[in-house]
Design a protein around this nucleic acid. Sequence first.
DNA 1: GAAATTTCCCAAAGCGCTTTGAACCATTTC
DNA 2: GAAATGGTTCAAAGCGCTTTGGGAAATTTC
Lengths: 344, 344
Amino acid sequence: MNLKELSSLLGLSQTTVSRALNGYPEVSEATRQKVMAAAKKYNYAPSSRARSLATGRSMAIGHVIPISSKHEMVNPIFADFIAGAGETYSRSGYDMLLSVVNDEDEEAAYREMATKGSVDGIIVHGPRENDPRIELLMEIGLPFVVHGRAGNDTRPYSWVDINNGHSFRRATDFLLDLGHRRIALINGIESMDFARRRRLGYEAALAARNVRPRPELMSAQEMTEQNAYRSAREMLALPEAPTAFLVSSYISAIGVRRAVSQAGLKIGKDVSIVTHDDDLSYLRNGDEIPMFTATKSSVRAAGRRCAEIVLDHIANPDLPPVQELWETDLTLGLSTGPAAKEFT
Amino acid sequence: MNLKELSSLLGLSQTTVSRALNGYPEVSEATRQKVMAAAKKYNYAPSSRARSLATGRSMAIGHVIPISSKHEMVNPIFADFIAGAGETYSRSGYDMLLSVVNDEDEEAAYREMATKGSVDGIIVHGPRENDPRIELLMEIGLPFVVHGRAGNDTRPYSWVDINNGHSFRRATDFLLDLGHRRIALINGIESMDFARRRRLGYEAALAARNVRPRPELMSAQEMTEQNAYRSAREMLALPEAPTAFLVSSYISAIGVRRAVSQAGLKIGKDVSIVTHDDDLSYLRNGDEIPMFTATKSSVRAAGRRCAEIVLDHIANPDLPPVQELWETDLTLGLSTGPAAKEFT
DNA sequence: GAAATTTCCCAAAGCGCTTTGAACCATTTC
DNA sequence: GAAATGGTTCAAAGCGCTTTGGGAAATTTC
């Protein structure tokens, strides 16, 4: 069933039927009702192909998921971000176009989305320091929103980020206040912007209290349970083992927890853990009392917001860039306590 | 830059340029080279909008992600499945169209994809027992592949599934062989086909050895760390506590591990755990010696395969349905051992 | 050397919609 | 009663591509 058939069935022109369905005012209420009813009856929906050719808009937002050919990790927070963005899209009649590419093909993927015209806007994931993608996307001219920020690039592009530096500074301060002095940092790969900022926040807090940063207590790897476990285990075996861990992801925190338990130490008593918590739907940090003390910010909410912003930019191209820096909640859980005497 | 401009720039007809770019034989090698060079120089790529209108194919596969309005969980294995499917798509020039919808709107979402013609095929996620979507999709007539199966619907549709029943039967047998008699099952929601089959496999193994199934040792909930933790904790507090756990997801297994450790019990000694392992990229089960004994099957490989099958069906509509039942690997890890004497 | 074939290229139709510009009819205004 | 107005509707152009049905030039065949 297409427009032509439907129109002739109704004895109306394609123009009128199209307008009736799209809510234009130049059509009488009576005929609109008739058209709507017929559309429903014959299960008609305009072909998105034809429609987007005619309107020049494809009603889709592109997300490029880079798969590192080296480590092959798929970011676990990705599912929740997508879910958030997807909620926004489906409310607005937009689709989400996902492109999974090797990271070396990523730029080509963006360029292709633009030249093929398959999307009206783009969400950028996992920005790195001085990410070349920003430059590329500004050149391409498609509206885009970055989840995170790319280094200290101050050019006016839209992004939604959490205040990673401040967040980890506060968390470190909190541990210092509890008397901890040997605080380990289990971080993500530091070419990622968020990880770099977190380390800087952590170091700033240490410096402010004249605590010497110890390289052996800082690890920066892909945030898998296993990497975190191994790092924590090695650190706990040091002669001057850490009394607290600051961890960049919930998954990693689980690895740290395993190492700590296995060493026969009690979490929150012998060893404290503060983790960042993306509030993933399948890894909730407790209902009443959170298990981990955490810097918390919902990545799903970030997905929703990024999507909203890119849709705003599409609807209104003159909109100035939107830059939102969200503070995290430092939520107190059961994983932290004062530094044990013997260690101080 | 569009085809018209490019053609006139080259002094050729649109026909010839189009054919040159699409690899048709009716164009001389010399002009093809010229056209290719010009396309590259002017960064031309045919508009996917126009192209799909002309060809009638949209070069995209639809995935519908249902978000349960009740519990709001996003399936954590989803990211890896998508990554697998995405690899296949990008190799073949297809896009992935994701639609995140509330589960009550799911049928409408499929229907819409079909009538709007926005996709050429569909992948179905998370089939339930007697899933109405199968019927719907057969009626719609779009090629589709189900990741998993819908109950005992024997109609000829394509699916890729793991042998959940056999897998959990083997795992249960393995625990029984080790002397365990009180084996708990931490399962997913049993309206999901995979969870139902796993329970049946588990019960069959128990029945074959005349071990009475105990309802108090069976839980069926969304597979979050926390749900699993709570279930395991409650079970461990029973007068006749389980000596082994059979768990449906790695995330859940982590929750069980937490409960076991917290109870002061040693995993693999006091309490055994066997889990299903989807081989998620961010939750690898150890490199050398797996942490958990597990029934393992890569969900990413399943994503790749489902995508391949749906593309095959699109390329060749007469292809008979493809049904693949994959066996899992029962990989021995450190989480299992003989039942402790005191318990037997 | 004429006829048949092959090679290469083109004009134009068509995919299914939206949107422009014009036209028709029924009211209202002067 | 003629002119202006407003509410509805329509025919046709156009979005940018692919593909059909030829057709001219080059090559081969007899």
